[in-house]
Design a protein around this nucleic acid. Structure first.
Ligand SMILES: [Zn+2]
Ligand SMILES: [Zn+2]
Ligand SMILES: [Zn+2]
Ligand SMILES: [Zn+2]
Ligand SMILES: [Zn+2]
Length: 330
DNA sequence: CGTCGTTAGCGCCCCCTGCTGGC
DNA sequence: GCCAGCAGGGGGCGCTAACGACG
């Protein structure tokens, strides 16, 4: 345990300390350094560097309490932003590193400079950010507009003031509620100019457009294949890495896709949800039913495209078609 | 100006689907 | 025929950034 870790371990808040890593609780030298009460941490997990051009001593401090000298900054990356990455003296934990907001000129972390600004959650220009920048006291995300910070802070407070009158589901933002309500009303304001398919959300229309443009922005890291959606790239890459995150509840067999696991679990449950309407056989997979249907179509080649009824003679199909609006024949 | 409601846009997770091919 | 592998693509939600009307 390094001196920072033991400092936090003694009960000090890790405020003003950010650490690199992915989502989830963050540890430094086995001590959790994630600020208490924070929920949404993605901004925090990005290590952002502020470029000082010389080595400097760094002090981390929790408001007016005891402060901790953590070390000296030796090397700094070039393309950096708001935070300064710090190597802790005598710390062997290289998996997570510590950063703090630094004033380029004084070398002080920002809260030493302007404690009153902290109260307002606003940072002055001396801290290397545009004057009037607002920040969240929980996760240190920064905002140029106070209103956007106010919206953000609802996330930490769990405040969801917008409520769907139909299903009572709640939302942090008005526009998210509006989007949600369209799932009840079926309203689809976004229409594809090419095929006229309509969508309830702009983002889903944008995804759809890749069908027409052929655009595949998500490239596999292991082979030349590319995909229209990131999810599908990740799914595909598992075929290279062998990762199988989903395991069967009954036998433990592992799968790359959740839906494949669910398909497999029906082997154990005996669930056959796909019924043949012609002979009342049922199947565990839709594709097996489709294959099976060929058996019926072989004997009755005249098939109504509308209702899938099939007939041995064309005249019977035509008779049927008088009632059914579809007259296509295979 | 600052405030505040609204809009644009991105990223993510989830789910269902259809084809395929080995046994 | 049963079952697993794999890709396509829509539904829905969370969040940030920015816009614009209005005091
Ligand atoms: Zn926050
Ligand atoms: Zn609802
Ligand atoms: Zn289209
Ligand atoms: Zn690949
Ligand atoms: Zn049948």
């Amino acid at each position: 345990m390094c001196q920072l870790a033991s400092w936090i371990d003694r009960g000090h808040s890790p405020a003003f300390v950010v650490v690199g890593g992915s989502a989830g609780p963050l540890y430094h030298c086995s001590v959790q350094v994630q600020p208490e009460g924070s929920v949404y941490m993605s901004g925090l997990h990005e290590i952002k560097l502020y470029p000082p051009h010389r080595p400097m001593d760094v002090k981390l401090q929790y408001l007016k309490e005891e402060s901790l000298d953590v070390g000296t900054i030796e090397s700094v990356s070039k393309n950096s932003e708001k935070f300064l990455q710090v190597d802790i003296d005598g710390c062997s934990d290289t998996s997570s590193r510590v950063s703090c907001l630094i004033d380029e000129n004084s070398g002080h972390s920002f809260h030493e400079d302007r404690l009153d600004n902290l109260v307002n959650s606003q940072i002055g220009s001396k801290n290397g950010l545009p004057k009037g920048t607002w920040f969240c006291k929980v996760c240190f995300k920064t905002f140029s507009q106070q209103a956007n910070l106010a919206t953000h802070e609802r996330i930490h407070r769990g405040e969801r003031p917008f409520c769907c009158t139909i299903c009572l589901k709640t939302f942090t933002q008005q526009c998210n509620l509006w989007k949600h309500v369209r799932t009840h009303t079926g309203e689809r304001p976004f229409v594809c100019k090419v095929c006229h398919r309509a969508f309830s959300q702009q983002a889903n229309l944008a995804k759809h457009m890749s069908i027409h443009t052929g655009e595949r922005p998500y490239q596999c890291h292991f082979c030349p294949k590319a995909f229209t959606q990131r999810v599908n790239q990740v799914k595909h890459e598992r075929t290279h890495t062998g990762e199988r995150p989903y395991s069967c509840r009954f036998c433990g067999k592992r799968f790359t896709q959740q839906s494949n696991m669910e398909k497999h679990e029906r082997v154990h449950t005996g669930d056959k949800p796909y019924d043949c309407k012609t002979c009342s056989r049922s199947f565990t997979q839709q594709s097996n039913l489709t294959k099976h249907m060929a058996v019926h179509y072989k004997n009755k080649p005249f098939r109504c495209q509308n209702c899938a009824k099939s007939y041995t003679q064309k005249s019977n199909l035509l008779k049927h078609a008088k009632k059914c609006p579809c007259v296509e024949v295979t």
